[in-house]
């Protein structure tokens, strides 16, 4: 067999690895629905960086179901198992609490790009949401810029780790099995997956930002140490651009995203609301720019003009000029009255 035939055979032999069409189409559909509300992609990268002030704010404990994401994993720094009992609806204008904290970061000036709680799902149970926190940040010191991504990946176990750079090597972090990979140049930098006792894994990625360089060993040491010092439950809070208060009808904040927008120095904020035991159904998002939809004028909300859009049962309520000149969009396949109810609970002044 010559090499060209071997390549052909290799590809054909891997056809069975292709994902299931129905599952992918369903997932795309969900994303299309969320984009209709103006939400950014869950794992979108925020361009640029800014220092996010984690001020003395009151933490909002998310009312998500399932204590799994709050269990201590790789780092037994100071935490213990926490069931994190749900609170009543909290004044969401206060700080949002991350499910875990970063107990150590490389020395330097830290600039946070993203604080979020992602919503994911497993292939076999696409209707059951899996929540996981993520931090994206940069650390600048002595003209060197490191990019750090720490992500709780509930749907990916460490033994299914895949890397940007190449094969992984086994490693143990705080007694938990993991797989790591590192390259001195090119994409990837240092990557690590560490098993989570309750399933899934924690992912740590440290690499030199474009235009910056870092020795491979520095990336390895930084990445491992970050993983060793992840602390569950989290004590970190993040200040949203706007909040929500006293949610109605058993609604809860299931997930949030606070990140720097592509052209906006202020942090964009979005929420996903629902019962949290199934995929969240209502999306609340700060829009980009001052674009106004071509919907019908609606009832004023908190002194702001609104626009109402109905796309075959998918409803959007735009609260215009809500925060810093940009609108807030509340959307979902729910009655119009429910959107107005939520809009009236927005906490717009920070």
């Amino acid at each position: 067999m010559n090499i060209e035939n071997l390549i052909k055979d290799t590809f054909v032999a891997r056809e069975h690895d292709a994902p299931d069409s129905d599952a992918v189409l369903a997932a795309a559909r969900r994303r299309i629905d969320s984009r209709r509300s103006g939400l950014s992609r869950p794992f979108a990268v925020a361009a640029g960086a800014t220092v996010l002030t984690l001020g003395a704010v009151t933490a909002v404990v998310l009312n998500r179901a399932g204590p799994a994401e709050h269990a201590q994993i790789a780092a037994p720094a100071n935490g213990s198992q926490s069931s994190q009992a749900p609170t009543t609806t909290a004044p969401a204008a206060a700080g949002l609490k991350m499910p875990y904290s970063l107990g150590w970061l490389p020395p330097g000036s830290v600039a946070y790009r993203v604080h979020r709680v992602n919503v994911g799902f497993s292939a076999d149970k696409p209707d059951v949401p899996l929540y996981g926190g993520e931090y994206m940040l940069t650390v600048t010191a002595n003209n060197q810029v490191l990019e750090v991504d720490v992500q709780q990946m509930r749907m990916v176990s460490a033994d299914r780790a895949t890397f940007k750079s190449g094969p992984g090597q086994s490693v143990t972090i705080n007694g938990q099995p993991g797989v790591e990979s590192s390259v001195s140049t090119g994409p990837g930098g240092y990557e690590l997956y560490v098993a989570h006792p309750d399933g899934g894994s924690m992912y740590v990625n440290v690499n030199a930002a474009p235009g910056s360089t870092a020795p491979a060993q520095q990336l390895v040491e930084a990445g491992r140490r970050i993983a060793e010092n992840v602390q569950f439950p989290g004590t970190t809070t993040v200040t949203p651009r706007y909040g929500l208060r006293e949610l109605p009808n058993g609604l809860r904040i299931c997930a949030f995203d606070v990140e720097q927008g592509p052209s906006d120095p202020k942090m964009m904020t979005s929420y996903r609301l629902g019962t949290c035991t199934v995929q969240p159904t209502i999306f609340v998002n700060s829009g980009v720019g001052a674009n106004v939809p071509t919907g019908a004028p609606g009832q004023p909300v908190q002194g702001h003009e609104t626009r109402y859009v109905d796309e075959n049962g998918y409803h959007q309520l735009w609260v215009l000029d809500a925060v810093d000149g940009v609108p807030i969009i509340i959307a979902g396949r729910v009655p119009q009255a429910e959107l107005y109810d939520i809009a009236n609970r927005l906490v717009l002044s920070q």
């Binding site: 895949t162 940007k164 990557e191």
Partner: peptide
């Protein structure tokens, strides 16, 4: 595609 978890190349053991 460059971003984090969605930009990893398969690696199923040492080559």
């Amino acid at each position: 595609w460059r971003h984090s978890w969605s930009a990893r190349v398969i690696a199923s053991g040492d080559v």
